[in-house]
Design a protein around this nucleic acid. Structure first.
Lengths: 328, 328
DNA sequence: CTGAAAGCGCTAACAT
DNA sequence: ATGTTAGCGCTTTCAG
């Protein structure tokens, strides 16, 4: 930076300002400086900037990135909102371990992020004190049934799951299995919604509840159908916790010659891949993940620029999208 | 850090060492210091550390993360290798735009990363000078037909695609369409492989080559089948550039009542999701993405610890996994 | 609108 | 094995 300053014939601080607060530098000087920067290929050192300014200008996104969940769509929303603003995003993967999560949050907090977007699996984060003591805005992408530590955006998974199962019921399915996963809050809410719908119809039976575990979701879905060979006559639909499980169920059914949707109805969850396909092959609960990400980023920006902080979690709508897998 | 030092009754540099080079501090002192750190919840400031040490200790992973490609598997490999080492990884999304890619690389390079792992789409990176001038190790995950800027790991997409099409030929399919995507090197190599196999069999026909574009891969795959309604009798198999396209083709076929694999054979690419499923529903070219990531990370570590730098790109094996979609 | 001085929190290099 | 000194590259604060 001092090189730039010397060549442009100004002081370093003016270069600094030309970069961060252009309006505080005269047009002439600014252009001159920018030209030199371009010429010599100067790039600011973020570490020095962060150290001097006491904030990193980075929004940390902590999410189960590597889980192949619908997170990508949320990530796209986040990136789109931040694009061409001056905050950068940094993604970090959190697993399913609350302790690891706390550690990671701790790490990021120490770097003075401009904000944190957290798609936490942990229901009662170990990190609550950490975050509440924190100055920066924190947005949780979550189930709106819980109270966010700071700000939150999400859907009501319980209601969504209930609606999905009610859709199956409306199609005449009666013995509806649940293929669930995870013990996190969202999974539990989905289970509750499933239970709600079936209990109301007087059809709830705990024997129909299956926990997916291990290996790939696709394989789990397939295995469920195989293992259920004997029981299958009694089961006529499966509500899956995500679309990949549903896909597995679909292929499993194909393989043992079970007709979808006639013999077996299948409903997935998230639905983002098929959402804009005209004739979706798979019925699914469409969750506005992109919007959730966009909104989360929006909330960070709002707080940063205007100090506004909605006190309640923002609830986004969900939608049941009927596809070929239940259209009978 | 000076607080910690004061309370522990040592100098700051000793605290610094206790953290980074434990063996250089006596056991007694180290324990004492660690205890104080725990007590007061001290967390090091990475910006200061990076500034003082002139390196960030972070490996930047630049890849089309948001493209829903097989990148996750590679990311897992990377994380697994770096896990419990002292380097942290930072993921950044690069799009399909070479100029943007150059900008991003520029940005990261300025932060003195410990290394860079690059899954570049650009064939002749704008950033070549940038990287070659760079001190840190750079690993490209790539097609091994091109020469890496520094180090490289990948597969031969041309050979893999050829093998896949030969598999289709061996199954008696004769009018094999290509559903491709992208103009990047890997896509082009796959096209060449497709061409190789069919040309050898005297069956190559450019009319069978289709470019997927826009919207979601699943939808593109489905649309291909619909649009081909008239031509379909002439086409008896589709080789797809990735598994999602293949899935779309599969569902499209289902919807118009075309039998897979009898009437239409389908082969995908990447195959990671189905690879460990006993009875895979989809024939696919299995690409060892996890291993590629792991190996890339390994190469970075090796260079960092021992200065070793293989001069040639490391080639990993691929495998054609036969699934139900071509088993006839 | 521009600049001078001071210092962000840590580590490299050089002592001891 | 531990400490001292200097300074990483930038931004804050205060002056003009």
């Amino acid at each position: 930076m001092s090189d730039v300053a010397r060549i442009a014939g100004v002081s370093p601080i003016t270069v600094s300002r030309a970069l961060r607060e252009p309006h505080k530098v005269s047009d002439k000087l600014r252009e001159q400086i920018l030209e030199v920067i371009e010429d010599i290929g100067y790039v600011p050192n973020f570490a020095a900037r962060a150290l001097a300014s006491r904030h990193s200008g980075t929004v940390a996104v902590l999410a189960p990135i590597l889980e192949m969940s619908g997170f990508f769509h949320a990530a796209h929303g986040i990136e789109d909102r931040f694009h061409s603003s001056d905050v950068t995003t940094q993604f970090a993967n959190i697993g399913l371990d609350a302790a690891e999560e706390a550690k990671l949050i701790n790490l990021f907090v120490a770097q003075n992020p401009a904000g944190i977007i957290l798609e936490s699996v942990a229901e009662f984060p170990v990190n609550k004190p950490l975050i509440t003591e924190l100055g920066c805005p924190v947005v949780q992408m979550m189930d709106t049934s819980i109270t966010p530590l700071d700000m939150g955006v999400g859907i009501r998974n319980r209601a969504a799951a209930k609606a999905a199962v009610e859709h199956l019921l409306s199609k005449g399915y009666r013995r509806i299995a649940l293929l669930g996963g995870g013990k996190d809050i969202r999974s539990r809410r989905r289970f509750e919604g499933y239970q709600d719908a079936l209990a109301e119809a007087g059809l709830y039976d705990p024997n129909y509840v299956f926990e997916a575990s291990g290996s790939s979701p696709l394989e789990q879905g397939m295995k469920l159908v195989f293992d259920l060979g004997k029981r299958l006559p009694q089961i006529d639909a499966v509500f899956c916790h995500n679309d990949r499980l549903a896909l597995g169920v679909y292929f499993g059914a194909q393989q043992i010659g079970l007709k979808v949707p006639e013999d077996l109805g299948i409903c997935g969850y998230n639905g983002v891949d098929f959402a804009d396909v005209e004739e979706s092959p798979l019925t699914s609960v469409y969750v506005p993940l992109y919007d959730m990400g966009y909104k989360a980023a929006e909330m960070i920006m709002r707080y940063l620029s205007e100090g506004e902080r909605p006190k309640k979690a923002v609830e986004l709508p969900f939608e049941i999208i009927e596809g070929a897998s239940t259209r009978r």
